[in-house]
């Protein structure tokens, strides 16, 4: 199977990674969340008077806990993704094997004990 698409995707990810390494070492960008910036823009637009109409019911007590829960989210997703792609892959292989055996059945029978 040709790996053309994999190579293109890898190249895109590499360009992105190199850009990040270069940018983060040459500028003092903070890499904060874009939603935090939006929050600041809202405060600016409303003259600093804006009070959120609601607070989160629960907030991760620290950034460690937050990254734990983000990591958990990605892990759950990756697990499900791998399980079902593997399931389909194996299923297809067995089906192909069975089909091949079906075609060569007479031959197979004559060779079996």
């Amino acid at each position: 199977m040709s790996k053309k698409l994999e190579i293109i995707v890898l190249a895109i990810v590499l360009i992105f990674a190199i850009q990040f390494i270069y940018m983060s070492s040459t500028t003092d960008a903070e890499y904060m969340g874009a939603d935090g910036q939006a929050e600041d823009a809202i405060k600016e637009a409303t003259g600093g008077t804006y009070e959120p109409v609601a607070e989160p019911l629960w907030e991760p007590p620290s950034s460690e806990i937050e990254s734990l829960l983000f990591g958990l989210q990605a892990a759950i997703g990756a697990g499900v993704l791998g399980y079902f792609l593997g399931y389909y892959r194996a299923k297809k292989r067995y089906e192909n094997d069975l089909a091949r055996k079906g075609i060569n059945k007479s031959e197979g029978d004559s060779q079996s004990l």
Partner: peptide, 8 residues
């Protein structure tokens, strides 16, 4: 991280 120096 993105080119704008922030994350999304």
């Amino acid at each position: 991280p993105s080119v704008s120096g922030s994350c999304s």
